[in-house]
Amino acid sequence: MEIQNYKNHRKFYPPHHFIYLPLLLLLEVFGIYKVFSDVENKLTWTLFSVVIFLILYLAIMTRQHYALGLQNRLVRLEFKQRYFEIFNKRSDEVEGKLSFSQIAALRFAYDDEFKNLLNKALEENLSGDQIKKSIRNWRPDQHRI
């Protein structure tokens, strides 16, 4: 397995990203093409295009909404647990000062870097992307969807 880092940490679900969504996109393009080329059935092809667009939109949004909503809760919970293990105190005050993007980025840092990056994030208000780029020893997250 390839070592995870900033450049390759995003994941794809091939049946969804490379088959289902491209197929829906092709059907949408085909439907729009037919709206303008088949004047006799313009209303039918317009309806076809609208239905395909709605299916495409729902396929993207529903999958992302549920999966990412749950994962975001787990990332926050992981942050709370990790903060408690490192500092032996609750993270409520610190967590309230961080954006989710910052919390999510910190999970890629090992404990020694975590402390420094957390302090920098609080003092300098580093963005999540800046935190990720600052990590020298990347701690992989192979379970993110």
Results as ranks from 00 to 15, higher is better:
Phe48Pro: 03
Val51Asp: 04
Leu117Val: 07
Leu126Ser: 05
Phe87Gly: 06
Tyr33Cys: 10
Gly128Cys: 03
Ser101Val: 12
Val94Thr: 15
Leu77Lys: 13
Leu68Gln: 02
Glu93Gly: 09
Val50Ser: 03
Lys132Asn: 00
Ser37Cys: 06
Leu58Phe: 03
Lys97Ile: 15
Tyr20Met: 09
Leu21Val: 10
Ala121Arg: 02
Leu77Gly: 10
Trp138Pro: 03
Ser91Lys: 10
Lys120Ile: 02
Gly69Lys: 02
Gln142Lys: 08
Gln102Thr: 14
Leu21Ser: 07
Asp111Ala: 07
Leu126Ala: 00
Gly31Ser: 15
Tyr20Phe: 13
Gln64Ile: 01
Leu122Gly: 07
Asp141Ser: 02
Val39Met: 06
Tyr6Met: 09
Leu70Ser: 12
Tyr57Arg: 00
Pro15Arg: 05
Pro15Gln: 10
Phe12Arg: 08
Gln102Val: 12
Asp129Thr: 08
Asn72Trp: 10
Asp141Trp: 03
Glu93Ile: 13
Phe30Gln: 04
Gly96Thr: 13
Asn88Met: 13
Asn5Val: 12
Ile52Met: 00
Arg139Glu: 08
Pro15Glu: 03
Arg90Lys: 15
Glu95Ala: 15
His143Gly: 06
Gln4Ser: 12
Ser127Val: 02
Pro14Ile: 04
Asp38Tyr: 11
Ser49Leu: 06
Leu47His: 06
Asn137Val: 11
Leu74Gly: 04
Leu26Cys: 12
Leu118Trp: 01
Asp111Lys: 02
Val39Asn: 07
Phe48Ser: 04
Leu70Phe: 12
Leu25Val: 11
Gly31Met: 10
Phe87Cys: 12
Tyr13Met: 05
Tyr13Glu: 03
Arg107Ala: 11
Val50Thr: 03
His9Met: 07
Ser127Pro: 05
Ile86Gly: 06
His143Ala: 01
Ala109Leu: 07
Leu23Ser: 15
Leu74Asn: 09
Ser127Trp: 07
Lys42Met: 10
Glu113Gln: 11
Leu118Asn: 05
Ile131His: 03
Lys89Tyr: 11
Val75Arg: 11
His9Asn: 09
Arg136Val: 10
Ser99Tyr: 14
Thr46Ser: 08
Met61Gly: 00
Phe36His: 08
Phe18Ser: 11
Phe12Ile: 11
Leu26Glu: 14
Ile52Phe: 05
Phe114Cys: 03
Glu93Tyr: 14
Arg90Ile: 10
Leu77Thr: 12
His143Tyr: 07
Val94Asn: 11
Ala59Pro: 04
Asn72Ile: 08
Lys115Cys: 03
Ser37Lys: 14
Lys34Phe: 09
Phe87Tyr: 12
Asn72Pro: 01
